[in-house]
Simulated scan of single mutants.
Amino acid sequence: MKSSCEQCGRLTGEKEVAYICSFECTFCESCTTKMGAICPNCSGELLLRPKRLKKPLDVAKSQLKAKLFGR
């Protein structure tokens, strides 16, 4: 996930509200509203970015354990 808005540079970290298109272009809520929820890069729809409930490393560990131990 990108950590800043591609339009204004505002931080869009994991705990911030951000919008993305299907190419994961990232924009803050204010810029998304100004742009009419249309990505200026690909003309795709900007949607609310999903929140991560787990850290990426924790997910990778669980996936590796499942492959190794068949769980």
Rank of each mutant, 00 (worst) to 15 (best):
F69I: 10
N41V: 15
A37V: 02
S30W: 02
S3F: 06
C25P: 01
C21F: 07
C31K: 00
P50K: 14
C5T: 04
K67I: 07
N41Q: 12
K15Q: 12
K15T: 08
E6M: 14
A37T: 10
G44P: 01
C8T: 09
K15F: 12
L64S: 07
K61I: 02
K15E: 11
K2A: 15
C28W: 01
E24H: 11
T33E: 14
D58S: 11
A18Q: 02
E29Q: 06
E6V: 01
L46D: 01
K65Y: 04
G70I: 01
I38E: 03
G9H: 12
A66T: 15
R49A: 10
P40K: 02
E16W: 04
L53E: 15
L53F: 14
S30A: 11
R10I: 05
L68C: 08
F69R: 08
R10M: 13
G9S: 07
K51Y: 10
C8D: 14
L48W: 04
S3T: 09
R49Y: 03
P56H: 02
K15I: 04
P56M: 09
K54F: 13
Y19N: 04
P50Q: 11
R52W: 11
T12A: 03
G9M: 08
G36T: 07
C28K: 00
Q63R: 14
V17H: 03
C28Y: 01
Q63H: 11
E16Y: 07
A60I: 10
A66D: 15
C21G: 06
T12M: 05
C42L: 07
K67V: 06
K55H: 14
V17D: 14
Q7N: 13
E14M: 06
S3P: 02
E16M: 10
L68M: 13
R10T: 15
G36V: 08
L48N: 10
C39L: 08
F27M: 07
C42Q: 10
F69M: 12
P56A: 15
L46T: 01
L57V: 12
C39W: 00
E6F: 04
K34V: 10
R71N: 09
L64C: 05
A18D: 02
E45R: 13
C25A: 10
P56T: 05
S3D: 15
T26Y: 01
A37N: 13
C42N: 10
Q7L: 10
E29P: 00
E14I: 04
N41Y: 13
M1E: 10
C8F: 08
L53C: 09
P56V: 04
P50N: 11
F69L: 13
A18E: 02
A18P: 00
C39M: 09
K65N: 07
E29K: 14
